[in-house]
Design a protein around this nucleic acid. Sequence first.
RNA 1: GCACCCGUAGCUCAAUUGGAUAGAGCGUCUGACUACGGAUCAGAAGGUUGAGGGUUCGAAUCCUUCCGGGUGUACCA
Length: 542
Amino acid sequence: MKKYLISKFDEAKNKLEYLNEVPLQLSAPASKDHGDLATNIAMMLTKKLKRSPREVAAEILENLNLDENIVVKTEIAGPGFINFFFSENFTVGIIKEIIEKGEDFGKSDKYSGRKANVEFVSANPTGPLTVGHGRNAVLGDTVSNMLEWVGYEVDREFYFNNAGRQMRVLGDSVKHRYLQLLGEDIEFPEDYYQGEYISEIAKELFEEFGDALKNEPPEGKFKEKAENAIFDDIKKTLGSANIKMKNFFNEYSLYEDGKINDVLKKFEEKNLTYKKDDALWLKLTDLGAEQDKVIIKSTGEPTYRLPDIAYHITKFKRGYDLIVDVFGSDHSATYPDVLAAVKALGYDTEKVRVLIYQFVTLIKEGKVVKMSTRKANYVTLDELIEEVGKDVLRYFFIMRNASSHLNFDLSLAKKQSEENPVFYLQYAHARIASILRMTKDEGLNYSLERLDKLATPEEQNLIKKLYDFPEEVLTNAEHLEPHKIANYLEELATLFHKFYTECRIIGVEKELSEARISLAVAAQTVIRNGLTILGLSAPDRM
RNA sequence: GCACCCGUAGCUCAAUUGGAUAGAGCGUCUGACUACGGAUCAGAAGGUUGAGGGUUCGAAUCCUUCCGGGUGUACCA
């Protein structure tokens, strides 16, 4: 529908040059009374032309040259909106397109040939993934899916650091548990990793090596074993939430490849660093930040900032057209520094999009659960998946805007599982599957011959919603807003249920029946495709 | 103190990126199966969009000042 109007507006530009002055905005009004599409263009022009918006609207309409068989009615409404009402025969064509394209309906080639890197999860292997990582993982995976749907070739990337103080503490935590197993009476430091998994790793080492590791340093076998075990665990967890990951990028490789030194050299060339108190500082104030930051400590160790900068530079050098970082709000203060530094070295930071999400508050039996990996006071993602299932988990994490705080009420997610929005969507899909099984038994099949018979408001509303799907996918991918796909699917499911309630599919005359079967197949296809983008299953029975 | 994010129905959240009468779900109340899945549908009640000021044809959305919550503000990551 939009394409048609856009082409008509383009034609009209020859006669009304002022149409070039402002961008054409076409949107579907909230209320059906206002037509299928509306534009505010007359109101936007009112100031420039110094004429009343309704007068401008009338002039535009006169010059649009619309086909009455396609646009059956136009009107100038309210302060100066132009409303367009489309013919029913124009919209039903979408059913044919949906059925033809099937699982590809909604995909776009707008960004094909371009490469995107989506960095997400990026947890250090010090413990199992927790609820907090869950939102990150689901967001990153879903955004990746969306980008793929609009044509990008997406690399999903997990950045981690298996060196440094945290990992030493991890190794030493395991060693302490190991020594305790050997019967040594040593105290377990409070600020060490308290989780049960540490003891399990220690036990495995004991079973494998007996007491032979008594004098092994914490950074040796202990750390190595812990890292491997925890990483295996993380990968397993991601798999069970249907989260795909391609690259695991080790921070340490940046040192081995000399990338860190390269960056330091470049900073020096550009005179962006200075020494103070034995530390090396980056002149971030020259780049617009509020204060300079240390990039190499007086001990000679770099701070996290330096490898982060080097890491982002590798993303540019690997040729990505789009670089997405999925970060929790605790990083919101640090990424501007990294981007400023990368920009100062000559890279186009316009390519970087940072998706910041607010924290998840887990509520268990009415109480807020405060979480800390170190204190082992957390709920793991595995536990959550086991309790509510991967579909509910993914849906709860994705259905809200990333920028808003999310309350995850564990008892509610379980208890309400029957009234859960995710089941509402899946139910619509299963319901259609059930009808299709039944029509098949009756010897009925879909037919595109008499789609013009789909004339009730319920049928038309559903068709128009289906029509929106490709654009929903496209704009929401561009804005990195996966929650809107979930919202869209809920609205679509509602319209389907209304159609189902009002319109019999079986037991009406054959032509109408077959047209309605076509509509049901189309609706099922779109629901299934939407669920696929969200990483959810589309069951035929529930 | 300063920076960023948030504040919308009793609760959890939407709102086509500045558009028309601010919408859903849960909860509450009233209805609908001798016909395709009642995990559904129809209806009711519920709002000064935290408060005040500003910008304009038009503001939940942008600017500003307060109030309240979250996160940062390290030679931790």
